[in-house]
């Protein structure tokens, strides 16, 4: 009997409780497979961000466990978790968090240089390719402050993709964008999932945008109340 291959990312009954007793996430279980584009929705304060931090190994659950590619992460050290984030995960937040002293290209290069998998020239070529794919070739040499909001967010996506991660976690990435730019970002996510087989988890308030995902998880008061797959 052969066991099925492990899920890309799996949460088993994870709960995150603050020391004061507030519960941010309650007994959440889910499996994420390659190529899935998942929208996480829910009212403000329902624990969407908290769940994303747990799945992204930025925070540890007080109960339950998170498995990345079948590997239990509970016993890993902070440095080992950092290494997993570096290699397998990419984050995009509502705020772009680009380093203001560095050009767009250099920002994208930061995770690559930290990992050191590619030589300098190869890394630059790869970073340029990422920026081009996002329509950002002209902005490569510019500082973040010289970019528009939509461009900054695309630069942040390019940085999240720098080390070819299996999973992208985005927390309201379109929260500061107008409708057109927001739609463009979702187009990018859809393509990353369908064409490149990455798993995408996006927290969003926007019900229209959420419809473009092929799976929707709805949270209320820290509980997963629905988990539905489209068509």
């Amino acid at each position: 009997m052969t066991s099925p291959p492990p899920a890309l990312l799996e949460a088993q009954h994870i709960t995150r409780r603050l020391p004061e007793g507030v519960t941010l996430v309650a007994d959440a279980s889910l499996k994420v497979e390659r190529g899935e584009f998942i929208a996480i929705t829910g009212p403000s304060g329902s624990g969407k961000s908290s769940l994303l931090y747990l799945l992204g190994l930025l925070d540890r659950p007080t109960e339950g466990r998170v498995l990345l590619e079948g590997r239990d992460t509970a016993s890993l050290s902070a440095a080992e978790l950092a290494n997993l984030r570096l290699k397998r995960l990419g984050f995009v937040f509502q705020f772009h968090f680009l380093l203001p002293e560095f050009s767009t290209l250099d920002n994208v290069l930061i995770p690559m240089r930290r990992l050191g998998r590619l030589k300098d020239a190869a890394a630059r070529a790869q970073a340029m390719k990422l920026l081009e794919a996002l329509g950002m070739a002209e902005a490569a040499a510019k500082l973040p402050e010289q970019l528009s909001g939509g461009m900054r967010q695309r630069a942040a996506i390019a940085r999240a993709l720098a080390n070819d991660p299996a999973i992208i976690l985005a927390d309201e990435p379109t929260g500061n964008l107008d409708t057109r730019n927001a739609a463009a970002v979702f187009d990018i996510f859809a393509r990353l999932a369908s064409e490149e087989g990455r798993a995408i988890l996006v927290v969003t308030h926007d019900a229209e945008l959420a419809k473009r995902a092929n799976r929707r998880i709805h949270l209320v008061d820290g509980w997963i109340v629905s988990d539905t797959r489209a068509g």
Binding site: F93, F95, F97, R114
Partner: peptide
Amino acid sequence: TRDIAILKSLGFTEGD
């Protein structure tokens, strides 16, 4: 603090 936070989420360790 923001740059520190993003560097950590990108995979920089406390030592880094």
